[in-house]
């Protein structure tokens, strides 16, 4: 995906969550990973890129088209993408299957039969076929996240945005989810992902950017940022998170 970000800024009151980020990514970048300390601006940047927030200043251009600035335009944009949250955010009053089917029917205007068939394929691929009748409260965290991922993937999104998809999970469940994300990366899905899983980031990323205090501190191709960090901030951060 080619992405051009210039002077991107987002304030929440006096807090500068994203503070003047500029970045150009070429079409060869299929997987972009955002790393950095909590509160550094990863989630906000991801939400801006996903059209969930409107920037205070600056612009984003994706594949040659600027992100729309009207609510209708943004909604169309969001519909083409898939978004996954740290805390799953499944709809608790709907079964796992309905969580996937409802958006297909109501947003993408598929027939119910086609939607159910498609949901069946996706959950089977994610190893969740036996759990579709269950309510979210009956599923483990890893299972909920896999259903949430199925929901984000079912309509065949242009771009998948994952906001720390494994941060709320224990190690075993992390692996369940990361296996699937890795598989999606290999299958050619375009992904922007924020994560604290450095090993995973290093293995999957075409491009890694490090955010701190809302600013772009450093960016690098693939494993380069991990192998030879250029700034003290990144060196210290990686030293700390890789230590244990």
């Amino acid at each position: 995906m080619s992405i051009e970000i210039s002077g991107l800024t987002k304030y929440y009151g006096a807090t500068r969550a994203v503070d003047g980020i500029s970045l150009t990514l070429s079409d060869e970048v299929q997987v972009l990973v955002l790393i950095g300390p909590s509160g550094g601006g990863k989630s906000t940047l991801l939400r801006l890129l996903g059209g969930l927030e409107i920037p205070t200043a600056g612009s984003i251009t994706m594949n040659g088209t600027a992100l729309p600035d009207t609510e209708e335009g943004l909604r169309e944009f969001r519909r083409r993408n898939g978004f996954l949250f740290q805390s799953f955010n499944l709809f608790p009053h709907l079964s796992a299957l309905e969580n996937i089917v409802l958006p297909l029917v109501k947003v993408h205007e598929w027939s119910r039969n086609k939607a159910i068939e498609r949901a069946g394929e996706v959950v089977a691929r994610f190893g969740m076929a036996d759990h579709v009748k269950k309510m979210p409260a009956e599923l483990s965290g890893g299972q909920q996240q896999r259903i949430a991922l199925a929901r984000a993937m079912a309509h065949g999104p242009d771009l998948l945005l994952l906001d720390e998809p494994t941060s709320a999970l224990d190690p075993e469940m992390k692996a369940e989810v990361l296996d699937i994300v890795a598989e999606l990366c290999e299958a050619g899905q375009r992904i922007i992902l924020s994560t604290h899983e450095m090993g995973f980031a290093r293995g999957c990323a075409d491009e890694v950017i490090f955010l701190g205090n809302g600013q772009l501190v450093e960016s690098g191709r693939g494993a380069a940022l991990f192998d030879s960090p250029q700034t003290e901030l990144v060196r210290t951060f990686l030293g700390r998170v890789m230590k244990w």
């Binding site: 969930l52 909604r75 969001r78 978004f83 109501k106 947003v107």
Partner: peptide, 16 residues
């Protein structure tokens, strides 16, 4: 809030 955000990300309109 997370439920509203999730609905927004899916592409639901306000009424939906």
């Amino acid at each position: 809030k997370s439920q509203w955000l999730s609905a927004l990300a899916i592409g639901f309109t306000g009424a939906q």
